[in-house]
């Protein structure tokens, strides 16, 4: 009789990396991911030329701010599209059972999936780097502005991945997961619209809690504030933890 391989019950990174690598390879093999990536890069280039560069001379910092603002809009669309399928699709194809019956925690599975989207989105961002580099040809660019902008895009993607993963865990199928992801990301985005029509102190809270309005523009301008780092970091962690709770409850209640 063979003996089982013991695995420590504490959270180890090894399964996280293992799952992240597999998921990343899965994204590269996915037509949807290629289309999303291609559209992201095409639209970034197009909008950069049409809007960020624009007619006439403009300060480099303004061009960069426009670029990061445009790219953030595309990130808002692309990341939920890449993320909402991560659990729902596996459930649909049946491969989820492999993860469910493996000695790994829901948290390890989710962080693995989370990292894969960050890797894919990071690669897309890397491929857009030639656009701000063009600004070097015509003006001066502060490297800090570039780093801050890309950091902001990465953090925005992380927060969106968190909420989309929760949606993917909640959805019973791809369609419902997609709807939940759209509602989650969209609702979080337009929260600021509710602020002007709310009474204090709710209006202030809503404005602070909104995904974009108060937290991303500083990154686009090249400013990094701790409160914004915390906001997006907490959003990502809460999203993943919410998804982990959903998965655990589903096992108990299913």
């Amino acid at each position: 009789m063979t003996s089982p391989n013991p695995r420590p019950k504490t959270m180890t990174l090894s399964p996280v990396w293992l799952i992240a690598r597999r998921e990343l390879a899965g994204l590269f093999a996915s037509r949807a991911a290629w289309w999303t990536g291609a559209a992201y890069l095409f639209l970034t280039g197009l909008l950069f030329n049409a809007m960020a560069l624009g007619p006439g001379a403009r300060p480099s910092s303004v061009v960069l701010e426009s670029f990061f603002t445009l790219a953030s809009g595309l990130t808002l669309l692309a990341v939920p599209l890449l993320s909402f399928r991560l659990i729902a699709e596996e459930r649909q194809t049946g491969s989820w059972v492999l993860l469910e019956t493996a000695p790994v925690t829901p948290r390890q599975i989710l962080w693995g999936k989370f990292l894969s989207v960050q890797g894919f989105h990071g690669l897309l961002l890397g491929l857009t780097a030639y656009l701000p580099a063009l600004v070097f040809l015509h003006g001066r660019v502060a490297p800090g502005h570039l780093l801050a902008g890309y950091l902001g895009l990465g953090l925005l993607a992380a927060a969106l991945t968190g909420v989309s993963l929760a949606a993917s865990a909640l959805g019973r199928g791809l369609l419902t997961a997609g709807v939940f992801a759209a509602l989650g990301a969209g609702g979080w985005l337009v929260l600021w619209l509710a602020a002007p029509v709310s009474a204090p102190p709710l209006n202030t809270a809503l404005a602070h809690l909104a995904l974009y309005q108060q937290h991303f523009p500083p990154f686009a301008r090249g400013q990094v504030w701790l409160k914004d780092l915390w906001f997006y970091g907490a959003g990502a962690v809460l999203g993943v933890e919410w998804a982990a709770v959903v998965l655990r409850q589903q096992r108990e209640k299913r």
Binding site: G26, T93, G94, S95, T101
Partner: peptide, 23 residues
């Protein structure tokens, strides 16, 4: 205790084999 408690003591084949088509 779930799959974590069972460690690698169990091999499970569900009705639909849990394959990743692209792998």
């Amino acid at each position: 205790g779930g799959a974590l408690a069972l460690g690698s003591a169990v091999g499970f084949l569900p009705e639909t084999p849990p394959l990743y088509a692209e792998m």
